[in-house]
Design a binder for these strands. Sequence first.
DNA 1: AGAACATTTCTTGTATACAAAACTCTTGAC
DNA 2: GTCAAGAGTTTTGTATACAAGAAATGTTCT
Lengths: 218, 218
Amino acid sequence: MEPRRADNIAEALEELIFSGALSDGDRLDEVRLAEHFGVSRTPLREAFQRLALSGLVELIPRRGAFVRQPGPVELIEMFEVMAELEAVCGRLAAMRISDAAVDALRLANLKCQAAIDAGDPDTYYAENESFHKTIYQQSGNSFLEQEACKLHKRLQPFRRQQLRFRGRMVQSMSEHRAIVEALDEGDAVTVSNTLRAHVAVQGEKFHNLMASLKKAAE
Amino acid sequence: MEPRRADNIAEALEELIFSGALSDGDRLDEVRLAEHFGVSRTPLREAFQRLALSGLVELIPRRGAFVRQPGPVELIEMFEVMAELEAVCGRLAAMRISDAAVDALRLANLKCQAAIDAGDPDTYYAENESFHKTIYQQSGNSFLEQEACKLHKRLQPFRRQQLRFRGRMVQSMSEHRAIVEALDEGDAVTVSNTLRAHVAVQGEKFHNLMASLKKAAE
DNA sequence: AGAACATTTCTTGTATACAAAACTCTTGAC
DNA sequence: GTCAAGAGTTTTGTATACAAGAAATGTTCT
């Protein structure tokens, strides 16, 4: 691999972890990775420090850096927080959203539906993400928006697993539509509750998540 | 200053920033700080990477590391998120709290009141923090607990300013008592709304915060 | 054979060296 | 007097060197 800038190394490592090339418990060998990226150990170690704080990597003194993927319990907890964060974004957005943003949400939903009909999952994921990010943004609180985006990104790989299950996309779409209508009416309570339920991992979804986790562990 | 371990340097820098020894916009001079801590630039730069992700420091490539304190807008946003996070913790805690924890909250409140009566602000701060952290913990979600603690810590210096204003401590106490009662009754909605209002910066508190910010800038 | 200890090898943590970019200060032109 | 260009200085970013701790290997003794 050609040499990279240090700024990008943390990102590249993140990519490697998300993509599954590095899995839970793996030691991040400094010299091996340094060779791989064509740099020395110094910029690599700086990248480790970043990843450590974001929770993707555990730094054990005098031992090294280890990949740390969330286990089932932590994952459930993270999804619960994501659901609550989205509910908060929705509650605030219900009071603050612009007409243009409501239109943008409707458009994203139409494109989502079209992607389902066309059997195009990539477009579906993209438009689904756009839908949620618009709501984060319309919370009118950029700090909240950032935090929501961070957690969203961290859960991304697991979410993709989720949508594999049959019927999930269709149900998800009808939830999306209900959310837009409640936002348009400024009904903060309904937006909040519907979004929470939409994101929360419960019932059927819980078992699906556990099943895909076990599958991934094999 | 005697040499320190690299692990502690990030923490020490954080302390310097929180204590006000380093203020907004200051450049973190690598060689000067290296001398100050009695280490070389390498461990310092690693610490910078950590602080950058936590938002206390901005890393501008080829320029250096700069202290980055939140401005008024960002601060308001952070307090809003804190209020919502506490509301979520409270909502979950209302369903999950243990009897022992309710007792612990009552005890913390008694100690808080005693501290006010004795004119002992340090004890008051400590017990107040204990009250809130107990609620985070009783959300039954350790990921949420961690996130709440992180933001709580980041807002700590500004919160201390807040409580300076007369009458605030007394009002705060009566809110605390209402929260415990609602938690005891398992009334999630009341807990959530009361906690949100307790933490939110609005009305009088907003002006106080702005005033202390201006004062700090002089 | 197995456990305890010594030795060797490997890895991390830190210092230092060097290259390249940014900043500064001087000089010179208009 | 102001602005621009360039030499010199400072500072960042990265590589490398070295020291100290951990793991691995081998050796000896029971």
